[in-house]
Design a protein around this nucleic acid. Structure first.
Lengths: 296, 296
DNA sequence: ACAACCTATGAATGTAATTCATAAAACAAT
DNA sequence: ATTGTTTTATGAATTACATTCATAGGTTGT
């Protein structure tokens, strides 16, 4: 029988490297872990790791168990947190996943009133997912996903929450600043500043440059995630141009010497969705979040 | 600490209704379960169920734990099976999910040589998924998904394995049998026989009738899943018409008085994909399955 | 009211996890 | 090579915990 402790041991050993350290982090003795694993091995009749010198290398079987541990343990831990919250009279935690960088600013405007309204609900925002936002939703790593790419599949529900236009931000004195709109070719001799994510997920590339087989003179990424401000500062000081939601740029046009220009004749129009697990979509404090998001 | 036994108890109780029956199925006494749950409740400081008369009704907290149990226990059980297989010198099990009914016949032609080639790999085919095929793949309920709807997301890989044309099957003496192709309107006075799945997932509706805002005179579904034969028998005896892959119909045109007709001038062309988890896509016996599928 | 079900619970029991105290092996430095 | 340090492995003792037993206390239906 694979028990929770076995998985915890395997996880900690692969994390810390040695049985001894794993034992410390689990508040047990090295001997306990050694015995526990030995027993499991003889029950299942497989070796979990082999000793190469003094390092423990996971076997095929061990890898399977580690993968199981990484999938299961977070869920157990989260349920325990949930129980604590229920015990404390709270509703629970709404874990929001973000797959849309500029949305961060927008999300803040939704979360603030939400926290007011639901004082007994915690909010937790996550931005990194091993298997993408959809995977995180299926795995119960998050409860709601803010994304521009909905996925209408059984078990999941996606609701559109807001529309915006993606625009090019340039310095007010930039050569392009006078134009009504820019073409993909216009960008071939500028430095483009973006969030540090894959090119396929950057709309300015996937929906504008790539279809026209154009590419910018130079591509710079900003390392930190929350700092849309920094990107705009860079644009303001003429280090390059960037692509951001129109509503976001508007907030800065008074403070900084920047200008928003339409991308292409018709502009690039985007929609943001919130994805939920169908089961949970009727829970009051979940529904309320989506409702607030639609208003914002 | 939520342990595996706790989850097993909660699952069995919600399945069988009473503690006593759950105890029997777990080879324990009723007393053991009562004590175990009592302890958990006092540790977490939440009630798991409340007694309404003699039935146990899960509380909010209990529901969370049940959901956790249903997600986690199958994964533990599967890993144990895997361990047994590894212990026995086997490679493991390839659990194939199917989201494409007519593909069943085709899959058989792939599985047969695969079993020959990989005598130390078991194959398991599943067709029902609580959260859809994609969900099953993310949840590790299956290892490969046969589907017409690929989903290019991080963590998953989809490979096209074969193309086919969807055709209308009619009785050889049917009024439509003489036509080179049929229009959506042609179908408005026939009985259409399909697999028992949602209309949105039936291509004959979603790609042919619905865009033309047409609908059949009558819509009949066949209850059992594997029986494409039955559907063709129905067509052969003039009880209605159906939509199936061309290659499948061809196999029966000699034996039965049926005829395949193109749907629309250009026909409906479909592609079938196999989806895998990225992590596992490099495992030899998994790769080999996709390779064989491409050949078939 | 009684039989036939349930669940709850305290005390006794038995089992299994954990520690303790070493041994044995691997590595680094002298 | 030798020594000191750091690791895992293991048998025996100990402790903690799960489980059972025996029984009381509910609920339901006849």
């Amino acid at each position: 029988m694979i028990e929770r402790t076995h998985l915890a041991i395997i996880q900690q050993v692969s994390l810390r490297g040695t049985l001894t350290e794993a034992a410390i982090s689990l508040h047990l003795t090295q001997s306990a872990l050694s015995h526990a694993i030995k027993k499991l091995e003889s029950q299942l009749n497989v070796k979990i790791w082999s000793k190469e010198g003094r390092v423990l290398r996971l076997t095929q079987a061990g890898e399977s168990m580690l993968s199981l541990a990484n999938r299961i343990l977070p869920q157990l831990e989260h349920t325990e947190v949930l129980m604590k919250q229920i015990a404390a009279g709270q509703k629970g935690t709404l874990r929001i996943g973000m797959e849309c960088h500029p949305c961060y600013q927008w999300l803040l405007t939704v979360v603030a009133p939400y926290l007011e309204l639901w004082s007994d609900v915690d909010v937790d925002v996550k931005q990194k997912f091993q298997f993408g936002g959809i995977g995180a939703l299926f795995n119960h790593d998050i409860d709601a996903l803010v994304t521009p790419d909905p996925l209408f599949k059984r078990g999941l529900i996606f609701e559109p929450v807001f529309d915006y236009e993606l625009v090019l931000v340039v310095n007010a004195d930039h050569q392009l600043a006078q134009q009504d709109y820019v073409t993909p070719e216009d960008l071939s001799n500028v430095t483009l500043i973006t969030y540090p994510i894959e090119i396929e997920r950057l709309d300015i590339f996937s929906k504008f440059m790539l279809p026209a087989q154009s590419s910018p003179y130079k591509h710079k990424t900003i390392e930190t995630i929350e700092t849309t401000d920094i990107m705009l500062q860079m644009v303001a000081s003429n280090r390059g141009v960037s692509a951001l939601p129109a509503w976001l740029v508007e907030q800065y046009t008074n403070a900084l010497p920047i200008k928003a220009i339409r991308l292409g004749k018709k502009g690039i129009h985007k929609q943001i969705f919130i994805g939920l697990r169908e089961q949970e979509s009727e829970i009051e404090y979940v529904k309320s979040f989506v409702a607030l998001a639609k208003q914002a």
